[in-house]
Structures are given as structure tokens and as C-alpha cells.
Amino acid sequence: MSSADDMVVIQDLKKHFTGIEALDGVSLTVKKGQVIVILGPSGSGKSTLLRCVNQLEEKTSGEIWIDGEKLTHNSKQIDKIRSEIGMVFQHFNLYPHLTVLENITLAQKIVKKISKEKALENAMAQLKRVGIPEKANNYPAQLSGGQQQRVAIARALAMNPKLMLFDEPTSALDPEMIKEVLEVMLDLAKAGITMIVVTHEMGFAKAAADEVVFMDKGQIVEKASPVVFFTNPTHERTKLFLSQILNH
């Protein structure tokens, strides 16, 4: 089902929560190196779709392949695949009892069994990449929201992931901090990292996405290149969504 240049293949994915059909038959293919931006109203299933990819949410039915490997219920396999997928959360979820450096090195050491020196070296490299190496020995509470989210991105990158998932990474930030996080994400997109991004930042979608996916009521309504999506959408629901967010 999954060819060699596919990073993620999702086939007829369904997810029921009690009383709600969060995902109602979603199929999506993400090629290696692609940046996919998922848009849609809240409650449309965007986050659930993202969380099913690294199995933070257990799917009800359907199949998912990551880099050719089919996801199963085997907890060893789940842990292994998760260690190869970086995830960035809306609320950063840094470990508050650890320093920035410890946040970035912990999983390298205990999951990937990398030596302390290598992990530290790697952590510093990632901190430079996100532009805040001077904060290495601070605690998360001493950082601004934008800095915390950049540390979270560095923490994910330090695991050398095949795929990065972003779950509304700028939604909890003050407006003036959104830019610094989006700039880091744009750099990653340019560097050819495969990314799936759930966001409300249309500017990022236009600038970085290879494809924009629009979801509503647990289904993919429209999938198109950003140029087509923003200038000439085919679906009525998409037009309505775009008119509401662009006309103010």
C-alpha cells in the first residue's frame, strides 16, 4: 500500500469518541520531504488525525503506514515509531522540573541510548538551530512562550525524527511571539523535513505548504496546492471557511 517515497499513508481512518465521529474515513498520503498543512474549523478532527499518526489517540479502524511500516497494537513498535516522530504541542509541554538542556537530552539518553556527551552536543546544536543556545541552563518557567515552543521544537528535533507533527504550535502564544516560532518552522520546511502542521496561520500555509488539506466534520473536504486552495477552491464549505477567516 505504501511506496518507497511515501512517509505517511493513511487509509480510511476512523475514530469514534463516545457519541462523536471525530474521524470519519480519512485517507491521506504524505510524501517524504513534503510539508502538509491541515486547516479546518475547531472540532473538525485535525488534531485527532495528527494524534492518530503517532498513536497518542488509538484509531477505531483503518490503517496507517509510517515509512512503509504498518502500525500495530504492539507497544514496543508503538514506542519505537514514536521515537522517530517528533511532536510539538499547542501548550509546549516542556518538563518543568528539568533545565532546557535536560529537556532535550533526556529522551535521547533513555530512549535512544545515546551517550551523555553525544546527547549534549546534539542538544546544543538543536538549540542553536532554533536560535536560543544561551538559554541552555534555564528552566522552562524562565522562558517566554515563544522561547518555550522553540525549545519544544529543539527537543523533538534532537531525536532526529523522520517526521515532525505540529499540533497548533502557535495557538497558545502571544501575537508578538508567533513570528519567531513560525520562522523556525519555515527553516525546517526549507531544510526538507517532512512535516504535518495543524494550524490557523494562513500565512505559514501559503509560504511553506506543498499541499493544504481542509477538514470538516471528520472528513477531508479539499486537498490542493496553496495557490489553488487560497485563490480558487472548488468546494462550497472551503469557500465559506476562507471567506470567514480572510474577510476581517
Partner: peptide, 16 residues
């Protein structure tokens, strides 16, 4: 809950 999710998303086991 986010703390557990962040840790699990990095591949840590429940006990780790």
C-alpha cells in the same frame, strides 16, 4: 496530561 503525552510522544514507555 500533556506531560505524559510529551514523554510518550518521544518514545518513552509508560514506566519511563
Amino acid at each position: 496530561r500533556g506531560q505524559m503525552e510529551a514523554a510518550r510522544s518521544q518514545g518513552m514507555s509508560y514506566w519511563q
